[in-house]
Design a protein around this nucleic acid. Structure first.
Lengths: 334, 334
DNA sequence: GTGAAAGCGCTAACAT
DNA sequence: ATGTTAGCGCTTTCAC
């Protein structure tokens, strides 16, 4: 029961529905006269194409589903923001889901996404339930896994090595003389990528023969997590002089609490963050952090999805795994 | 070209497609024997219903489209997060769009949303192009406008009075003795709600007979905007002793720069933020801010959408405009 | 309780 | 360049 249908547009402009359909998808394939008549009819009628019907007939939609763990902080919303912008330039709409770091919820989201016959699915990470892997493998839908490349991709993956990031973060602390390092994370049980970074830090510390431990908060990342962590560290641990964070947000909370407790950063406590969020540059002291190339990641995601869209075979892809690398931005906190 | 269709499920379970369809929507309306057979078939075949086809036939989808100005910061992504969670509890999927504070882009998004025959559209603010108002009024789709209630709603609106917020923010500064107040915002030309808050602050200042001015950054809200603003204020203005911000993010930047310039907050400079984001409680000093009841707003949005969904007439709604109010959270910055 | 039949609004050959 | 035709996979009367 649609207000205005293509048929009505066709009648008003005195052409056949298929000509209207053609005009909508390839305007230049229609005569100039017809173009004008049809556009007029569309305008006067206020016609809005029914993409559902179109999608049914074409057996695919121009929607890409992107699933991230969370939208609570600026972390993934910034990332989603980039992808959405790029995709929309190609006339693709973005359906956003967030899994709350739960693989089961991710499974439900994938199922829901699949039922829309999307032009692609963008996942976060390479860890999924078996059902997800099966569903995706059996579907014709191109899949891009992002943020992590440590595993066998379903289709293609683009991201960076989290273990190396963790090593680099910790090494930075070691290099400036830290002897007792703590990794602070949130929900480390669920966030496998943060866990990998923690592992990387741990390995770096072991290699350097210095003390290392980690604390994980049960709450999602926030400055409060950082505040709590610092209090735990000063009350329960001895002589900690360096902290690696799973997120800049947590690092910011650490910084705040250090100020309150008059702990000098970086002299008494060096801190390395992750994500290089907006405030990392402006806070006091500036936060040493890991910067990711979101633009590159988004560009590659888009490229993969577009090329699949235009019928490129998976086998044609030069490489199924792309490492976008990362960069340590040195500021005053470490 | 779908891998497994309902027809195949019907064949395998030896019933008709319409029985399968019925089972999917009202399992209890089918005999127990049939229920079992059908579920078995679904499981062995790995059937995923095609929502596109279903949507076409049913002439509506279970998708709600939500359009926010930005996903760059935690501001709206937190809001989207709440709504999405609530809606998903009702089996509704959320399509997220961001307009970059552009009414034209909003128009394109609304058009795209409408073409999916959504179960509802959630807009930010009450300012839209005429085309948007027309399209929405002509469609059967329930519309909820959020964040603002200052205007004639298309359908229903839920939000709060931004002018009053601005007044309250400024009054807080006046009450503690500020004599020279500046409002700091980002993209005030585009962000009409921030503009209203600025206006409210201005009125409060005028009523109290004290100096007031505003600065607007061309960039989107970030801590950097706050840093720039403070430098401008100390270099170009004289004796400013109070700042009202259009966002906590900006206030945070202000706080950082005050620290660097050794400006005491709140003694030399009192600061009021907006949004009561996570860090407002933990930063130094704690940020006095305006707290919004997102949960209430999300609950009302959901309720409106659900009731329309179940065939309630618009006229049945008790009130088309809901004011969720706001609350000033007093901390040390003002 | 179950099935047959008629579309939903559009796209995509194919023919003209 | 334009029209004709045959569905896409499902929901929904309406019989049985």
């Amino acid at each position: 029961m649609q207000s205005v249908t293509m048929k009505q547009v066709a009648e008003l402009s005195r052409v056949s529905p298929s000509t209207v359909s053609l005009y909508l998808r390839k305007p230049e394939a229609v005569s100039e006269k017809a173009q004008e008549k049809i556009q007029n009819a569309i305008d006067t009628l206020g016609y809005v194409p029914n993409l559902i019907a179109g999608g049914l007939a074409a057996a695919r939609s121009n929607v890409v589903s992107i699933i991230v763990p969370s939208l609570r902080t600026a972390f993934f919303s910034q990332w989603v923001n980039r992808v959405e912008r790029l995709l929309s330039e190609h006339g693709i709409q973005t359906l956003i889901g967030h899994s709350e770091y739960s693989l089961d919820r991710e499974e439900r989201l994938v199922k829901a996404a699949l039922s829309w016959k999307p032009a692609g699915i963008v996942l976060t990470g390479v860890q999924h339930t078996d059902t997800v892997r099966t569903m995706l493998a059996n579907s014709e839908v191109p899949v891009v896994e992002t943020w992590d490349i440590d595993g066998e991709p379903i289709d293609t993956s683009v991201g960076f090595n989290h273990k190396e990031v963790g090593q680099k973060q910790c090494q930075q602390l070691i290099d400036r003389g830290c002897k007792n390092i703590v990794f602070v994370g949130a929900r480390l049980q669920e966030d496998s990528r943060a866990r990998m970074r923690c592992l990387g830090s741990s390995e770096a510390a072991i290699a350097a023969g210095i003390a290392f431990t980690h604390v994980s908060d049960l709450q999602p990342a926030s400055t409060k997590v950082g505040v709590r962590a610092l209090n735990k560290i000063v009350s329960s641990f001895k002589d900690v002089d360096g902290i690696v964070c799973s997120s800049d947000i947590i690092a910011l909370g650490l910084l705040f609490e250090c100020q309150r407790l008059a702990i000098k950063v970086p002299e008494d406590m060096a801190i390395v963050g992750f994500g290089d969020l907006d405030f990392a540059e402006t806070c006091n002291p500036g936060l040493t952090s890991i910067k990711l190339n979101f633009d590159k990641m988004a560009a590659i995601v888009t490229e993969r999805l577009i090329s699949s869209h235009s019928g490129l075979l998976k086998a044609d892809l030069d490489t199924p795994v792309v490492d976008i690398g990362f960069e340590l931005v040195q500021r005053d906190s470490a």
